[in-house]
Design a protein around this nucleic acid. Structure first.
Lengths: 139, 139
DNA sequence: ATAGCTGCAAATGCTTTGCAAGGCC
DNA sequence: GGCCTTGCAAAGCATTTGCAGCTAT
């Protein structure tokens, strides 16, 4: 009757294979921390701390490298709110964010609760790679 | 018959007085560099370089301090596109931005050429301080 | 006179890199 | 085995800070 709430390794394994990253111990462990339990907005430092307290031996440099590899592979999306404060979002679908200036926290705004219309065309045949909307909230 | 294209000191002076910043030599000079010649998106480093080549003796630390004071006073708006890359926009009216990922340049999108509708209310009595839209363009 | 600025250099914080050792296929 | 990955420590970069000296009012 007990639900196993921890995502099996095989799922993280498939995820890594799908994007062509070799499934090392560190990548598997980080993938499970990131993608278990729904959408997250996490910094490199936070993920590193979390890994260490889960007894996952991994260096901060590897956390950074891994986050960027995941981002390039489309498993994560990077969100910059302040100079020198960058978050990685496990939700890569189309959506935007509330940013709480005081606490520094991010919160999703589903794409259907906000609408950016009339986006002008990119100049001279360039493509729009993404539209980021950040609604800054005092508090 | 020659137009004097350089904005007089008195204008920068009034600007500083209006926001209650003491009009020092450095602030006056930086204000003139910033607000002469229309809308600009400039980094601290760029402004420092520009000041030096205009024979304005000012330290990089003072440029940073001044840019932040101007931002807090509402003379400038800070725009963050990448972690560790922050621009100051001399246009403080309501508008948004194209960001050219390759060149790192910013370009204004007038508020009437883009529309963000249906912005959800800020949670529990918090105020929205700003909505930033960045349209990222490859190239 | 005095409160507020500035310059310098050192410190900080986040992120990246170089390279030797280790792990996956 | 061979190539990719990791760890560590060091380097890098943008930005901030502390403090003595200067300046606008």
């Amino acid at each position: 009757m007990t639900m196993i709430s921890v995502r099996p390794y095989s799922q993280a394994l498939d995820q890594l294979r799908a994007v062509g990253l070799r499934p090392t111990r560190q990548r598997l462990a980080l993938a499970r921390l990131l993608f278990d339990g729904g959408d997250r907005h996490i910094s490199a430092e936070q993920l590193h701390t979390e890994a260490l307290s889960s007894n996952i031996r991994v260096s901060l440099a590897t956390v950074y490298n891994t986050l960027h590899q995941f981002t390039e592979s489309g498993l994560l999306r990077e969100i910059v709110v302040d100079a020198g404060r960058s978050y990685f979002d496990t939700n890569t679908t189309d959506h935007h964010h509330f940013f709480y200036e005081k606490t520094g926290k991010l919160c999703d705004i589903p794409a259907d609760l906000i609408a950016v219309t009339k986006v002008p065309n990119a100049p001279e045949g360039l493509n729009i790679s993404r539209v980021d909307v950040i609604v800054r909230v005092e508090g």
